[in-house]
Amino acid sequence: MSVDFSSVPPTGRTGVRSLRGLGAAVVVLLGLVIAADVFAVVVGARMYALRGAEPVGFEVHERWESLYRWSDVATMNTYVACGVVFILWFRRARINAEVFAPDGHRLVRGWAVWGWLVPVVNLWIPRRVALDIWSASTPGAHLGPAPRQSSGLVNAWWAVWIGGYVPTLAALTYAKAEGPAETRQSIALTLLSVLLDIAAAVLAVRVVRRLTAMQHRKALEATPVP
């Protein structure tokens, strides 16, 4: 079964499939990620305040602790669901880009998926693949070696997304320590990480919408002369 939800656009370029269905699904899921992150920020901010305040009632503390745990579940589930669909969209974009510019890619197609899953290399490989897709999908570019198109949007999205790892790792370190001060510091770092995740999700929405539109326009261009 095809991973695309929309039909093939009217184009003479064999192998090009529309990204609009998958793109719309990714945008919706990114919206859910943002909603879950906003919930986590609200609950996390309250937990941070409670940790620094005078002792509160047991019931109040338990209620916010429960909400804090549920916010973790919500953010993780929406993140995983969005990640799966995003990778499907990303792979399809890479396949289309091969039609637009067969010789314009520095890495083989498999890295469009494995680049996200292999530890360490996932810190830079997906960005390189994304930039090649962006270059190949630029309307008006000829088929062949793709001209390198600078994309501040892709770079901004990637920088913010990777930047969110720093406070996350720091928060995990503090979480292993004992004492209210360390716990409060862990919550603060987690809040920073979630805020960066919201910013990255907003930028990802723009990347998905822009690249989907670019590929649609590119697919509708007249078939080039062999």
Rank of each mutant, 00 (worst) to 15 (best):
I162P: 12
V33S: 12
R209Q: 03
V118C: 06
M214V: 00
A35C: 10
A204S: 15
P10W: 02
S6P: 03
D4Q: 15
A146C: 08
P147T: 01
H105V: 05
L50W: 01
V26A: 13
L203V: 02
L195E: 08
W116H: 02
V121P: 08
I125P: 09
V166D: 06
A213W: 09
A156G: 10
T138H: 08
S6W: 12
H142M: 07
R91N: 13
S66L: 15
P102M: 01
Q185C: 12
S2L: 08
G164Y: 03
L131S: 12
V207G: 07
N155P: 05
V60A: 14
R209P: 02
V166A: 10
A199D: 04
A24L: 10
D103K: 13
A97P: 04
E54C: 07
G152S: 13
L211C: 07
G164T: 03
F86I: 03
V194P: 08
P226T: 05
R128L: 11
A171V: 00
S150G: 14
S150F: 09
Y79S: 12
G104R: 10
W64S: 09
P147W: 08
T168G: 08
T138I: 00
L88D: 00
D72I: 13
V205G: 11
V56Q: 11
R128P: 08
P9S: 06
R106T: 08
V42R: 11
G52V: 05
V41Q: 07
A188V: 06
L191G: 15
A36P: 10
A53N: 13
V129K: 09
A170D: 00
A171N: 03
G52I: 01
A222E: 10
L19S: 06
V154Y: 12
V33R: 14
F5P: 06
R51M: 14
R184A: 15
L19D: 01
M214L: 08
I125S: 02
V205Q: 04
T190G: 15
T78D: 06
V118Y: 03
T78Y: 11
A146L: 03
T223I: 02
R184L: 08
K218P: 09
A112L: 05
F100T: 00
L195W: 11
L192M: 12
L107I: 03
A213R: 13
A200K: 08
A136C: 09
A177G: 15
L169G: 14
N122A: 02
D37Q: 11
L117Y: 07
A136E: 02
A53C: 05
A171S: 15
T75A: 10
P119S: 04
V194N: 06
F90M: 06
A112R: 07
W161S: 13
V80M: 11
I198V: 15
A74M: 05
V80D: 01
W111I: 00
D37Y: 01
G12C: 02
G164N: 03
G164R: 04
V28E: 05
P9Q: 00
V43K: 04
T223Q: 11
T11F: 09
A200H: 04
A40R: 11
W111P: 03
G21P: 04
